[in-house]
Structure formats: C-alpha cells, structure tokens
Design a protein around this nucleic acid. Structure first.
Length: 292
DNA sequence: ATGGCTGCTTTGAGCAGA
C-alpha cells in the first residue's frame, strides 16, 4: 500500500500535473495541501475519471486540503475537533489496508462516495469483508501554518495550532493504532534538512520552538518515515521559485509522513519524488511517497 | 543583496507563501 502527500500550490493550476503524476504513480492514498479552491470548484469528476475518490475541505485563495483514494474514505473528520479555526488545514479519513478486502471491493473502485448509501444489511456485509479494526489505517492530512516570521502573530498561531494538533493526535492514536499523519508541516526538523543552516538560523521553519513542537509530535509515538531509511544527503521537499533554487538544490525538507509504531514496523520505503518539480509551472513542493 | 517567483484577487497592486 502506498500513501503520499503533495502541496500542489493551487489545484486549479496543477490539476494537469496531478493527473499525470497519478497515472505514473497510482498510489492508494494521496493527501493534498494548498488546493486554494472552494469545495464547489473541486475537480471531483476529473479525479473520479482517473480512478480516485476524493474528500476535501477548501476555501477561496488560501489553504485547502484533500484526500484522494482508490478506496472510498470513511469516518471523515474536517478540522481539528474542538479547535475553532476558519482556515482549512486538516482533513482525516480511515481506510483499510487489508488486501483481501480490497480485492472484494475492487469493482467499486470507481463509484462515487455519494452513491454509497446506507441500506439494510450493509453493515453486516461490510463487516464480512472488512478487516479487523487493527488493520484499519487512519490517514491525517495536515497543512501546518507557515508562521511568516519568528515572533509574528502568525508564528504564535502556528505554535498554538501545533499544540492543538498534538492533543488531537494523542486521542486519535488511542483509537487508531495504525495512523499516518502526512502533509506540509512547514518545519525542517534538523539542520541536515536545510540547504544552508547558517543562513536559515533563527528563521521561521527552523526555529527552536517549531522544532520542539515537531519533536512533541514524535514523542506521541510517531516516526518520521523518511528517516527510517538511509537517504541521500541534501534531500529536500521545497525549493523557492526564486534564485534558481531548485537547480542549485537550495531547499528545505518540510513535507513529512509521520507514522505510528505499528506502521513504522511495516514501512518499506519513503521517497521524495523530484520529477514534478522539474516541469513547466511546477508546484514549489515535491510529493513524498511511503510504501507500507 | 530584504530582492529575487508564483498564485491569488471585488483585475490591481498587494498579500501570502517558505
């Protein structure tokens, strides 16, 4: 099973890249950030035609998150429960990783979720093919606030937001032993995740308080899946559009796939796909793909 | 070198991103 995350920086502009990428990389689940689209404009039909269900939480101009999946999503959560926030930065859903269940529902892959209506006997039928609860995977898609600059209002919003995320994930982990939190965290966890740590020192994305918040997420029992494996030095997921930053590999690693211990134990790889960043009019972020 | 790109917007110059 493959899970991925990609900050597309406008789904409207990037839809052709997204469809091409899905054709080349038919992952089971893809988390998107910065869709910058209201829900009524979400390109559900085009994604359906490509074989993907979608759930989404968007707004005009800024933010916006979505989860695309081969299998329909269930138990969809919009936003962090109990945390009032107008900014659309979180969506979560549950999937099954059981291959037998997948084969049995393979014929339904392309049906829309709205077609899945409750009917008598549906639960029993679902139970008959659904795996044990422990085989369900909870997928959390996050777009962490950027923070703009250290000590700004947006910086403190970011730190508070991360605390709310942590407390919610603490709860989620008690309900879902197999949990993956994928997205744009806007934090480079260590100096090796920054092309020029000296130049970036004290900047937003690398500040001590942000890194402590990242470690607080790790302390819940999550692993940075990228670091479960040997990786090339100077591996990044974001490069500034300016100054030919991508060509010079002046990047930072701020998009992450955090996995709970049971998922870490079965995790086979974590790869940053730089290919879409080389296209014309690319997103400034690269996708990150995890195989479980 | 505090700009430099890009996408968005009550379509314009200004905000936001990272």
């Amino acid at each position: 099973m493959k899970l991925a995350t990609w900050n597309v920086n406008s789904l409207k502009v990037r839809l052709p890249h997204l469809l091409d990428w899905l054709a080349e990389n038919p992952v089971d689940v893809l988390c998107l950030q910065e869709t910058k689209q209201q829900d009524e404009d979400f390109p559900q039909a085009a994604l359906q035609a490509a074989g993907y269900n979608s759930v989404f939480s968007g707004q005009k101009t800024y933010n916006g998150v979505a989860i695309l999946s081969r299998e329909p999503a269930s138990d969809v959560q919009y936003g962090i429960p109990g945390y009032a926030d107008d900014q659309k930065r979180v969506i979560a859903a549950t999937f099954t990783s059981d291959p037998i269940a997948k084969v049995k529902q393979g014929g339904n892959e392309r049906t829309t979720q709205t077609v899945h209506e409750a009917r008598p006997g549906a639960n029993e039928e679902a139970n008959a093919v659904s795996p044990m609860q422990s085989d369900r995977i909870r997928v959390v898609c996050v777009y962490v606030p950027n923070g703009q600059s250290v000590d700004s209002d947006k910086y403190y919003y970011k730190l508070g937001w991360l605390s709310a995320l942590r407390e919610w994930l603490r709860d989620e982990l008690t309900r879902y032993p197999k949990l993956a939190a994928l997205g744009d965290y806007n934090i480079a966890p260590e100096d090796r995740d920054v092309h020029d740590p000296v130049a970036w020192q004290g900047n937003v994305l690398v500040s001590e308080a942000e890194r402590i918040q990242f470690q607080n997420l790790i302390k819940l029992g999550l692993r940075d899946s990228f670091r479960l494996f040997g990786q090339a030095e100077k591996s990044y997921t974001w490069w500034d559009y300016r100054m030919m930053a991508f060509r010079r590999n002046h990047g930072v690693r701020i998009d992450h796939v955090l996995v709970s211990e049971p998922l870490a134990a079965q995790c086979k790889s974590c790869v940053i796909d730089k290919a879409p960043r080389k296209l014309e009019r690319p997103s400034d972020h690269a996708p990150v793909v995890v195989e479980l």
